[in-house]
Simulated scan of single mutants.
Amino acid sequence: MKGPRLRSFGLGAVDYLAKPFWMEELVARIRARLLLLEERPRRVLRWDDVRLDLDAREVSIESTGPVSLTRNEFDVLAYLVERPGRAMTRAQIAQHALPPNEERDDRTVDSHVARLRKKLGPAGARIRTSWGIGYQFAPPEESS
Rank of each mutant, 00 (worst) to 15 (best):
F9G: 00
F9T: 00
G10V: 03
L11K: 04
G12F: 02
G12P: 08
G12H: 01
D15I: 00
D15H: 06
D15A: 03
Y16A: 00
Y16M: 01
L17I: 12
K19Q: 10
P20F: 07
P20K: 04
W22K: 13
W22T: 05
W22I: 05
W22V: 11
M23D: 14
M23C: 13
E24N: 08
L26V: 01
V27L: 12
A28N: 10
A28C: 06
I30P: 12
R31T: 10
A32S: 15
A32H: 11
L34T: 12
L35M: 13
L36C: 11
E39S: 06
E39C: 02
E39A: 11
E39V: 02
E39W: 00
E39T: 02
P41H: 14
P41D: 13
P41A: 05
P41G: 12
V44A: 08
V44L: 13
V44W: 14
R46F: 14
V50W: 06
V50D: 09
V50Y: 04
R51V: 15
R51Q: 15
R51W: 13
L52Q: 07
L52M: 09
D53G: 03
L54V: 05
D55H: 03
D55F: 03
A56H: 10
R57I: 01
R57G: 01
E58C: 04
E58A: 04
I61Y: 02
I61N: 02
I61P: 05
I61L: 10
E62V: 01
S63F: 01
T64D: 03
G65L: 11
G65P: 11
P66C: 08
P66A: 06
V67W: 08
V67K: 01
V67C: 02
V67S: 04
V67D: 05
S68N: 05
N72P: 03
N72T: 01
N72V: 01
E73Y: 01
E73K: 01
D75F: 00
L77C: 13
L77D: 14
A78M: 06
A78I: 00
Y79Q: 03
Y79N: 05
Y79F: 14
L80K: 09
V81I: 07
V81P: 10
E82C: 13
E82A: 03
R83L: 14
P84K: 03
A87N: 05
M88E: 09
R90S: 14
A91G: 10
Q92T: 04
